[in-house]
Write a protein that binds this DNA or RNA. Structure first.
Lengths: 220, 220
DNA sequence: TTATTCATGTGAAATGCTTCACAAGAAATT
DNA sequence: AATTTCTTGTGAAGCATTTCACATGAATAA
């Protein structure tokens, strides 16, 4: 169960996030009919330096051609592979409230290989109802159904007060990663990956910027 | 129109994001009945080092008492002031689709001082309809109504293909900051702040972590 | 009152990330 | 075929962030 990376350099969070950005932009470049793209062009679109783009890629190999740049289709495939989005991820959403049900229809997820295949809620009025072809299950069966269906990732959009219970359940069911929208710091065992999505954080950054007349180098 | 910070140190994005985290945790500590909190306790809850917490705060002043820690209520107020969330921000949401309408009911926003007061869409079936007491306006009147109502921040949840037009309109109307959910790199003049919210990015990070057996220092 | 404990605030050191600058290699041009 | 142009890949330098370590000062206990 060792790393897939031949040389175990520690890749920074920023690098991974930029790979996501490159992937998205490469899809666009492909649509626009580009066959190749230089680090300069890619950097311009992301408001980065060309060196940054090349360095990010260099952690994983050499994908370009000197004097020419990168083959758009090839680089996109390669980054998809690195990010692990070149396959079908089985995802469940727990908590079919406002945000939860919005995520069911969020196209970007399926576009990147994340397929929502299970929905859970504790509200009797919601259980059994149909969202985009998926029937909402009773949260009582959470652990059992997650395990049976081999769900690998879970998105949590329940109130903060109950989020930890959901986590404990899905961890027992064997999920590998959790994306948490609830405003609370959750505990997971070390073999499970956890990320928090906090949408007000970005608004708070904007608020700070306005109030302090902030001029960051990198208003990404 | 100069900065509010007496000494114009450049504050990093990470520091601002951590202040948001501290703010939220301080609210919780307050509910739990804590009167004071140490950098050690705060760090433990955020999975950071105590030195990190103290250094973050030190950029803005000295708010603690040696031997005792920080007064919870006082520190929360101070951070709120730094972030500029100690006031009422007028926000509009443009694009009342799945995500847009979910955000209208998102409690964390109002809890941090962000009040959604205007909704816009181009769909005749949505225009005039009521969401949480707010009537959806026709996007044709975007610039005029934003300016008249003195909206300062805008959240964009329209399709990528039309997002730039919305931006151009609201920039003319005088908004100061934009939070963009559309999967596209938008252009804004330098006096307008822009942040992008990309929800699949975090799933992609999780995907990368699983596939590469990644062990980052800081799985925040 | 004095001693002890505790926890802040902060220069300095350590670590991490980004940018520079250039050798090397591929394509295009003459 | 030789030359020029272009752009990658990458050590090294530069810059930024985090952590260390300790002097300082407040509160508590003796």
């Amino acid at each position: 169960m060792s790393s897939e990376l031949p040389d175990k350099k520690r890749i920074s969070e920023s690098t991974i996030h930029r790979l996501s950005m490159y992937f998205r932009t490469l899809s666009l470049l492909q649509k626009e009919g580009y066959e190749t793209v230089s680090s300069k062009e890619l950097a311009k679109r992301e408001k980065l330096t060309p060196a940054q783009v090349r360095k990010d890629l260099s952690f994983f190999g050499s994908f370009g051609t000197r004097g020419l740049g990168y083959d758009v289709v090839e680089l996109k495939a390669k980054i998809g592979e690195i990010l692990g989005i070149d396959r079908h991820w089985k995802v469940a959403v727990i908590g079919i409230g406002n945000i939860g049900s919005a995520l069911v229809s969020y196209k970007e997820f399926s576009r990147q290989g994340f397929h929502i295949e299970k929905l859970f809620d504790n509200d009797q009025r919601k259980i059994g109802s149909n969202h985009k072809g998926i029937v909402v299950s009773d949260i009582k069966n959470l652990e059992k159904e997650i395990a049976e269906d081999g769900i690998e990732m879970v998105i949590i959009t329940v109130p903060a007060t109950v989020a930890q219970y959901m986590v404990d359940d899905v961890v027992r069911a064997g999920v590998k990663a959790i994306l948490n929208f609830a405003p609370i710091n959750l505990k997971v065992p070390s073999h499970v990956y956890l990320r928090n999505e906090n949408m007000s954080m970005e608004l708070e950054y904007l608020s700070f910027a306005i109030v302090n007349n902030h001029t960051p180098k990198n208003m990404k």
